[in-house]
Design a protein around this nucleic acid. Structure first.
Lengths: 236, 236
DNA sequence: GCGCCACTTTGCGCCATGACAAATTCGCCG
DNA sequence: CGGCGAATTTGTCATGGCGCAAAGTGGCGC
């Protein structure tokens, strides 16, 4: 197996501060893996053999309850570190990560984690910030679920998706990976029926444009007002 | 000001692995502060001047939405590190921490954080685990809010409170700090009215015993069954 | 090119829960 | 010890959104 090229990751914020030598060292312990759309990178409760950095693609992270209900925890975008169960004192993954498009990730054996952190303290700092960011996102979600009605939650969810994965198209901003009504329902704590109804209503109002596993925000501004508690109607 | 005694914190898991010398060094940068019941340790959006370790008492951490609604993020128990906004790349506190009983905490100036982490890598490891634990708790809460009805959420919340702050009394397990119906409502994403009704019903069934800002679990086992989806009724 | 299947839309009825409104009780302060 | 205010209980009513059911619809595989 050829050594991985440092230029693969040199541009990622996570590795920005590493020298070329250090990157070579880091990458020495990693392997690059391809995950076909629909395949799992890891599964909930399985032993946490590896941790990862996503190079390309998009992953959906899902928790499954004992009675089979699913909740979308988050989407992972390129550049993110994930699967660091080891870093938080777990020996199994707390959720399942599935590629929603063909994806590529670097994988390190979990036992390498303590060594790397010891060698590169910056890794710890960076990981703390990542964890902190996720904690805040998740808390925001709790606050939204506690205080906002479904329609506003869906609006917030779409705006967030557009922000992290939005692609400009003629008609507006398209979420650039396949996402179903069911997925959105699992992100916002509702049912796909309700999401479908909401999106249909928005489509009538010209706020979004639908499609099979496709969503385009046609009027992010009005959607934002709606998310913040205004009606989202045009004035006058 | 006299130097703080290392024995104050030597027994805390967070500091377990530190030598007496190191503890002295750590404590050299800290001051001990008392917070009367009802006073704030820090406030949401205020500059994050310090980070803390709670020595004694109990804090309630609350987020307030723009329109004034509150959500209880978590309770902090003695031994926990908190207010580490700096560690996660923030310069203001994301929530308000209030003493629900008279409390004592150690405070370090935020600028000390990077130095201490650099000097004691174990601090970083430990903090990552703390953050990871909180992330998981918060995610569990999202999953519960998404998939469970209010009654089960309240049951889970009480069991969790009892586990981390339960005190055995003759009649069962008492939550050992003042907590109102409103607080429980803000932890579970419902209203105090609904919480009051649920607790009244449980009291009739002999599951709990109420009181002003006081709750005693009389039958944790049946409450657990109820939380897990069974009825919580006695068989036969 | 056709057919199947996954995804989506929509209608309908109900019910858990929120909103509103009082009344009541308990603890504490003066 | 009386009174006040905060916390709690309870009743009534309204409704958002879920469960269930079924019909479209578009994309993909064969």
């Amino acid at each position: 197996m050829p050594a991985l090229d440092p230029s693969l990751v040199a541009h990622l914020p996570l590795f920005r501060a590493f020298s070329r030598e250090q990157l070579k060292d880091l990458l020495g312990g990693a392997t690059s893996r391809r995950y076909a759309k629909g395949s799992n990178v890891f599964e909930q409760d399985a032993p946490a053999h590896s941790f990862f950095v996503l190079l390309d693609g998009r992953l959906r992270v899902v928790k499954i309850t004992p009675d089979g209900q699913q909740v979308v925890v988050r989407y992972i975008t390129p550049g993110e570190i994930f699967g660091i169960a080891m870093a938080i004192g777990r020996d199994s993954y707390p959720a399942t990560a599935t590629a929603v498009v063909d994806s590529v990730a670097l994988a390190w054996p979990s036992p390498l984690w303590p060594q790397l952190v010891a060698k590169y303290p910056m890794l710890a700092t960076s990981t703390m910030q990542t964890l902190g960011g996720r904690l805040q996102e998740t808390q925001t979600r709790v606050v939204e679920m506690s205080t906002e009605e479904v329609e506003r939650r869906v609006a917030h969810a779409l705006l967030r998706l557009a922000q992290q994965s939005g692609k400009k198209v003629e008609r507006g901003i398209e979420i650039d990976f396949p996402i179903s009504r069911q997925d959105i329902a699992e992100m916002t704590g509702t049912t796909l029926h309700t999401v479908s109804r909401i999106l249909s209503a928005w489509e009538d109002r010209g706020l979004v444009e639908g499609g099979r596993q496709r969503i385009v925000l046609k009027d992010a501004h009005r959607l934002f007002m709606l998310a913040e508690g205004q009606s989202g109607d045009r004035p006058g």
